[in-house]
């Protein structure tokens, strides 16, 4: 028994080392910077600095919630109808959903600039048909659009994969017991696809709340998110590492709290799939 577990420990060792170097050490460093000043002495000053970034925090959370909600509203019906299609069509749509993920994130965001810009695709078209130009770029809407566009595959995939595993005989059983279409959706499909919804929400909300690139490119300077603040502070040099770390730490704690709240909804002891 001991020998065996030694062997398995040996096999696991590289992963543990990897996890230590790339996950635990950075986290500890972040915590260290967050609670020290430039000379390395313990301080809470960095944490109290955070008050100055209240607005960025608020905007980040608000945008992330809106983006997550929109993604969910689009993805859920889409995943549902996908499961109703022929297997070949399901695969086709799957590829279409995944395709943008193979392209660089920056390029995808840049391409939205050329669509939304004042002289971009949409406005050029509007002008050509004699309509007034719209202000699209550098608006909260553009930032949220960017988030939705970039992160929507992470919503569709988990919902689709959970939903496609729902046993058809359960739907037949519900139908057999007198349940019509909408009632089956409410009583069987939605409850059984909740684990997918929860992990989809998590996978969209977390990157949305901490993104910085989308807001910079599509939101101009007006829609500062907490991610932008962190990026900006780190960019200012070592003197600002402490405050930046404190912000990161608080953001991380917030995200963890959100996840904890979310996992409450999946009261299932076995089914709680949180990525």
């Amino acid at each position: 028994m001991n020998k065996k577990s030694f062997g398995s420990r040996l096999v696991a060792a590289p992963y543990l080392v990897w996890a230590a170097i790339f996950v635990i050490v950075p986290l500890l460093m972040m915590a260290y910077f967050a609670f020290t000043n430039e000379s390395g002495a313990f301080t809470l000053a960095n944490i109290s600095e955070i008050g100055r970034y209240k607005k960025a925090f608020g905007v980040s959370i608000l945008y992330a919630i809106i983006a997550t909600a929109i993604t969910l509203v689009i993805s859920y019906p889409m995943a549902y109808f996908m499961t109703k299609m022929k297997v070949s069509s399901q695969r086709m749509i799957m590829i279409i959903v995944m395709l943008p993920m193979w392209m660089n994130f920056l390029i995808r965001t840049y391409s939205w600039i050329s669509i939304l810009a004042n002289t971009g695709l949409i406005n050029t078209f509007l002008q050509s048909v004699g309509l007034p130009k719209l202000k699209l770029i550098n608006t909260p809407g553009a930032v949220i659009l960017g988030m939705v566009y970039d992160f929507i595959p992470y919503m569709i995939l988990p919902i689709y994969s959970v939903m496609s595993k729902i046993d058809n005989s359960l739907l037949e059983a519900a139908q057999d017991l007198g349940s019509n279409g909408p009632s089956r959706l409410r009583r069987v499909i939605i409850p059984l696809s909740m684990p997918g919804v929860i992990s989809g929400i998590t996978m969209v909300f977390v990157p949305s709340v901490s993104t910085f690139y989308i807001s910079q490119k599509l939101g101009g300077n007006k829609n500062w998110l907490i991610g932008d603040a962190i990026e900006y502070l780190f960019g200012m040099g070592p003197d600002y590492y402490n405050v930046a770390s404190a912000l990161s730490l608080v953001l991380m704690v917030m995200i963890l709290l959100c996840l904890a709240v979310m996992s409450r909804f999946t009261d299932d002891d076995e089914g709680g799939v949180i990525v």
Binding site: S169, E172, A173, M194
Partner: peptide, 12 residues
């Protein structure tokens, strides 16, 4: 009403 081969009970 039907009793299914694998019961098809609602696990939720």
């Amino acid at each position: 009403n039907t009793i299914f081969q694998r019961y098809a009970l609602f696990e939720h």
